[in-house]
């Protein structure tokens, strides 16, 4: 899907949102749900940032770190990929206090989801680094760059381009996972919807709006990643005919 199609879809989903919102029966729910959507967006953005940082550190540590670091990275990746995100959140929120660690619900949401998605991201980072042709490493060695210099200056900039599409998927996964933070008392979009549904029983209206809102946010993510991908690819192979 190109940038143009994505843009059109984003606009369409907003228009659809406006149309839905303009019906009398829907209008009353919009302000409350928008508040919830704002919480969802904040968790998503912060969670994504943490995920990227964790993924780069864990991915590189797993490939090139000294053995204790490598071991730590493997443990992190396997634990957070191999257990349910919901259980991880509960653990951070309900279990840690037993050991005297009390975290704000928002902190738990960002840390929990960021670490979870970061574990998947670490494998994305590793795959993208391995996909850079071996000749690039060899040229770096021939020019006497150290391994870290080669990684930073030569390999990572190229790997970054290959990482963007899978990261788009992971970011959307993270957005959708935010719905579970409603279970640790955060008033996100899903939580607000549930709450309104219980008091008004207007299930159709409420969950239709919620659906459109999630779609709109995920389309924005898709669009941003497309733009990023296009920019990165242009920087990598200016003028290449492919």
């Amino acid at each position: 899907m190109g940038v143009r199609q994505t843009t059109i879809l984003v606009i369409l989903s907003f228009v659809a949102g406006l149309v839905v919102a303009s019906f009398a029966g829907f209008r009353e729910f919009i302000p409350g749900l928008l508040e919830g959507a704002w919480v969802t967006v904040r968790i998503t953005v912060q969670g994504c940032l943490l995920a990227v940082v964790m993924a780069v550190i864990a991915g590189i540590a797993k490939m090139y770190g000294p053995w204790p670091l490598r071991w730590l990275a493997v443990c992190y990746i396997e634990v957070f990929r191999g257990t349910s995100a919901l259980v991880q959140l509960f653990w951070l929120f309900f279990v840690l206090p037993h050991f005297g660690v009390f975290l704000e619900p928002m902190t738990v949401a960002v840390v929990g989801l960021g670490l979870n998605v970061g574990a998947y991201g670490a494998e994305v980072v590793r795959g993208a680094i391995q996909a850079v042709p071996r000749g690039q490493w060899e040229a770096s060695t021939a020019l006497n760059l150290t391994r870290m210099q080669a990684l930073r200056r030569i390999i990572l900039p190229q790997a970054l381009v290959a990482m963007i599409p899978p990261w788009g998927n992971l970011f959307i996964e993270l957005l959708k996972s935010t719905a579970i933070v409603s279970l640790i008392t955060i008033g996100d979009l899903a939580f607000r919807a549930q709450q309104m549904n219980q008091t008004t029983l207007k299930t159709v209206q409420i969950f239709s709006i919620v659906l459109v809102m999630y779609l709109a946010i995920s389309m924005v993510i898709t669009l941003l990643m497309r733009l990023l991908e296009r920019r990165a690819a242009a920087g990598l192979s200016r003028g290449r005919v492919s």
């Binding site: 000749g135 690039q136 060899e138 021939a142």
Partner: peptide
């Protein structure tokens, strides 16, 4: 060293 496939840095 100069390589068969150039191995220039494309970025």
């Amino acid at each position: 060293m100069v390589f068969q496939h150039f191995n220039l840095f494309p970025h």
